[in-house]
Amino acid sequence: MLSNKSRAWVPLMAGLTLSLVSFCAAAQTFDYQLAPQQIAPDTWVLQGKMQDFSRKNGGNIVNTGFVVTEQGVVVFDTGPSHRYGKALRAAIAKITDQPIVHVLNSHHHPDHFLGNQAFADSTIWALPGTGQKIAQQGGAFADNMYRLVGDWMRDTDVQLPHKPLEIDSLALGNHRFRFYPMTGHSGADLLMLDETTGVLFASDMVFYQRALTTPHTPGLDIWQQDMARIDEIPYRQLVPGHGPIVQDRAATAQMRDYLSWLDTTFRNAAEQGLSMTELMATPLPDRFAEVRLSRAEFARSVVHLYPRYEDAAF
């Protein structure tokens, strides 16, 4: 129902946009420049940028990792695109000739599984809930990623996980992996502890120095309960889904602090009768304001979660 006047703009704008886009595409090589960083024996992590999705970063905002054993490689998360998956695979091949045996998708968010196509010849595992959510929402996530990061997504399709992960541990070579299924971040979240090295791949249950995201959390109370369980896991190093690796409890401490503050802030706001736009303007405490993207993610969380607090206050 746009007027004729607005339609007249469309060819002009489309022409300008197209010429710009095609020009930039020619100049860009779509190289993620993945540089695996060894954090423990046999263990490498590829740390993404602490940013939101953009055409500049190609969606590489996520931490992925892999463990090389003498019987093959285990990969934890496959990144945001087919190109990323292929780049990850090439990076692994530079380090080892071992085949990639097991691939795990920590949860159904697009930056964690859209690289699956590059690993279709391995066994891709995910929690049953994750497989269902990818089947239901994966296509829409992929569409949205094409919108956000453009040509980096070329040839990316949803490759479903092959097998529901219903085991609590897995041995490969001299490494023994223990799985912790949780729900706090997305409804189905997989954490993996390599008992051999003490490295915990914490998925998006833990963000560090980059604000956490809440679009599919079943509730901040559930996420907080899960955080208490994570603190009981005997890890020596923690790889968060986003942000730097830690050797201490700093990341989970920041998570618990923020989740608790968010819950209290939303409850108080509902009791005071604040509207969503008023709540979004709430200043963040300094300790959170310096966390990357905290202002933007706070506003998103208001949209995701505040209606529940409003309903409770009515």
Partner: peptide, 16 residues
């Protein structure tokens, strides 16, 4: 007119 910078949920965009 206040609105968030981005319509996180395009069916529920808060405005003042």
């Amino acid at each position: 007119v206040s609105a968030p910078p981005f319509a996180e949920d395009p069916t529920q965009v808060p405005i003042t």
